Simulated assay, not measured.
Amino acid sequence: MDGLGIALAFALTSAPAFLISAALRRRATPLDLRLAGMMRGVGLLLLGGAGGMLWAGGDSARVLAVALALALFVNGMAVAMFVAVARERRRQRNGR
């Protein structure tokens, strides 16, 4: 797959993140709004990854660098989401 095909695949995978973000915003609880912002961030990261793949073109070293950076940032966002949910559960358990 060439750089354009990979970039298109990354761009298309950002759509579910934006759709989930929109669905969470409709619920409008503080946690949902926080998670919606994080999902929007994931979508933007994926779009940035698509741009990075376009930049990388056919250079395998650049493709690897973009893929590693994207994996690091998206997994960081996943950890941030888990922490947000855990904090909210702890807050609710303690009755605050």
Score class of each variant (00 low, 15 high):
Met77Arg: 04
Ser60Met: 12
Ala9Gly: 11
Gly49Arg: 02
Asn75Ala: 15
Ala15Lys: 08
Met38Phe: 08
Gly49Ala: 14
Gly95Leu: 09
Arg62Pro: 01
Ser14Gly: 07
Leu19Glu: 05
Thr13Lys: 02
Ala36Asn: 04
Asn75Gly: 09
Asn94Cys: 11
Asp2Tyr: 01
Leu24Pro: 01
Met77Lys: 03
Ala36Arg: 04
Leu31Gly: 08
Gly51Asp: 05
Val79Arg: 14
Thr13Gln: 04
Gly48Val: 07
Phe10Ala: 15
Met39Arg: 09
Glu88Tyr: 01
Leu45Val: 08
Leu4Glu: 15
Leu72Val: 14
Arg34Glu: 13
Ser60Gln: 14
Leu19Gly: 06
Arg91Gln: 05
Leu8Phe: 13
Leu31Glu: 03
Arg89Cys: 12
Arg27Met: 10
Pro30Tyr: 01
Ala78Gly: 13
Ala56His: 00
Met39His: 14
Leu64Asn: 09
Gly52Pro: 01
Phe10Met: 15
Met53Thr: 00
Met77Gln: 07
Glu88Ile: 07
Asn94Val: 08
Leu4Met: 12
Arg26Glu: 11
Asp32Leu: 02
Arg93Asp: 10
Val63Ile: 15
Phe10Ser: 12
Ala80Cys: 03
Thr29Val: 03
Asp59Arg: 09
Ala61Ile: 02
Val66Asn: 00
Arg27Cys: 06
Ala67Glu: 06
Arg40Phe: 09
Arg90Cys: 07
Phe82Glu: 12
Val85Glu: 10
Pro30Ser: 09
Val66Gly: 01
Val79Asn: 06
Ala69Val: 10
Ala7Met: 07
Arg91Ala: 08
Ile20His: 07
Gly5Tyr: 00
Leu19Ser: 08
Leu4Trp: 09
Gly76Glu: 02
Ala78Cys: 10
Leu64Ala: 15
Phe73Lys: 04
Pro16Ala: 05
Leu68Cys: 09
Leu4His: 12
Ile20Met: 14
Ser21Cys: 11
Gly58Asp: 14
Leu72Cys: 13
Arg93Gly: 15
Ala23Glu: 06
Met1Val: 12
Arg89Trp: 05
Gly5Pro: 00
Ala80Ser: 14
Leu46Cys: 07
Ala36Pro: 06
Ala78Leu: 13
Val42Leu: 10
Ala67Tyr: 00
Leu31Asp: 04
Leu35Thr: 09
Gly37Gln: 08
Arg62Ala: 14
Ile6His: 04
Gly76Arg: 07
Met77Cys: 10
Ala67Cys: 11
Asn94Glu: 14
Leu45Lys: 08
Ala9Cys: 09
Met39Tyr: 15
Asp59Leu: 09
Asn75Ile: 13
Met53Ile: 00
Pro30His: 03
Leu54Glu: 03
Met77Val: 10
Val63Met: 08
Gln92Gly: 07
Gly37Val: 05
Ala9Asp: 10
Gln92Leu: 15
Arg62Asn: 04
Ala17Gln: 11
Met77Asn: 00
Arg93Pro: 02
Leu45Thr: 06
Ala61Phe: 02
Ala7Pro: 04
Arg93His: 11
Ala67Pro: 00
Ala69Phe: 05
Val66Lys: 00
Leu35Arg: 03
Gly5His: 07
Leu47Gln: 07
Met81Asp: 05
Gly3Asp: 03
Met39Thr: 04
